[in-house]
Amino acid sequence: MKRKIIVGSRRSKLALTQSNWVINKLKEQYPEFDFEIKEIVTKGDRILDVTLSKVGGKGLFVSEVEQALSNSTIDFAVHSMKDVPSSLEEGLVIGAIPKRESPLDCFVFNQVSSLDDLPKGAIVGTSSLRRAAQLLKHRPDFNIRPIRGNIDTRLQKLHVENFDAIILAKAGLARMGWLENTTLKLEDIAPEVCLTAVGQGALAIECRESDQLIRDMLATIHHEETGICVEAERVFLKKLNGGCEIPIAGFATKIGEQIHFKGLVGNADGSKILESKEIGENPGQIGNKVAEVLLSEGAETIIEELRNK
């Protein structure tokens, strides 16, 4: 009789698509196992009428899943890396980070087809303070309004609630197969306009530190370059003690042996944005150094002001 591996996943279409992708990759290596998805509804899924920054706390989309891991209800969990707090629950580890999808944000437009064509005062939907702050720096005339829900819901709201544009992660659209949808008016947002979230485009497969069988299994789908880049980003996030209530961005790429990392912290209206870049070979050192530079330039004050609001 085959051993059954229980995989924890959020209930959204995107989360289930991501979990099935991971399962199919593992089945190629381990046909002797059966895999079953256990759907878990998280706090972030239940509370949809409040912006993420006001729901409070870290791990809005992972805490219930981590609890299921800790009590052995599931064997591993598939998360979007950008949802995973920089500190995991005790006894849990990231067992694998597969190759990253596009880290970019992208506009989905209602009528126009380009950022430059959006009218003065355009209504742009996003519940991300990171996206809002950077867009307002670029276009202070934008009317940023919160929009929550899964990808399907937000695409419906684009037209029903008369947004001029909404912002989605390109990776989610790619994984759902919607980049080929010719009815969607899409445009990538350049990192110079909107630097991406830490870990955006990457998956995090979390498991128990003590479960060597699962750890060995997950190691077969780990992508080393993605893991190195995400490490720099997450060290940066941890040093700043950042969460969704703070406009923080960080993105690393690896070119040859060199890691190129840029980090950003800003206030909510984009009137003050701090940025720093670093190049080196040690991801942890690079992430720490960029965070330390931003802290020396006043990031701590910005973060404290936002947390005390």
Rank of each mutant, 00 (worst) to 15 (best):
E281A: 11
L203M: 13
L184R: 07
K272C: 13
P191G: 12
T183G: 06
R234I: 07
R234F: 15
L274V: 12
G177N: 02
A291V: 09
S276P: 02
C244M: 15
M176T: 03
K254M: 08
G227F: 08
G227D: 11
G177D: 04
C229T: 11
A291S: 10
L264K: 06
N241M: 05
K254H: 05
R208D: 01
I214C: 01
A268G: 00
V198N: 14
S210Q: 11
A204P: 01
K289S: 15
E257W: 05
S271H: 06
A252K: 04
A268E: 09
A232Q: 08
G280I: 07
C244V: 15
K239F: 10
V235A: 00
D216C: 11
Q285M: 15
A268L: 03
G263C: 10
Q285E: 15
G227T: 09
I255D: 10
T182V: 13
P283V: 03
G243Q: 01
G284H: 04
T253V: 09
V193W: 01
C244P: 15
S276I: 00
D216M: 10
A197F: 01
I228R: 05
G263D: 10
K254R: 12
E278A: 15
A204N: 06
I279K: 07
T183M: 11
L184Y: 11
G242Y: 03
A204D: 04
Q212A: 12
G242N: 07
L218D: 00
T196R: 02
E187Y: 06
L237C: 13
I273N: 06
G270M: 03
K277C: 15
L213K: 10
L186W: 05
E187S: 11
P191A: 13
E275K: 13
Q258T: 09
G287P: 10
I189M: 10
G242T: 07
D211P: 06
G263T: 08
L195K: 05
N181F: 08
H222K: 11
G199E: 02
L179M: 15
K272H: 14
K185N: 12
I255H: 09
E245W: 03
C244K: 11
L218Y: 00
I221Q: 03
L184E: 06
I286K: 08
E206C: 10
K289E: 14
I246D: 00
K262W: 14
H223I: 08
G266E: 06
G266H: 02
V290P: 03
P283I: 02
E209G: 06
A202M: 05
I246S: 01
E225S: 14
E180A: 14
L264I: 12
C207V: 03
M176R: 11
V290K: 05
E209A: 14
I228Y: 01
C207M: 02
F261D: 03
F251S: 14
Q258N: 09
E292T: 06
A219R: 11
G201D: 05
K277P: 13
L237R: 09
R208N: 09
L195S: 05
L213F: 10
G227C: 08
T253S: 14
E187I: 07
Q212N: 14
E281L: 12
E281K: 13
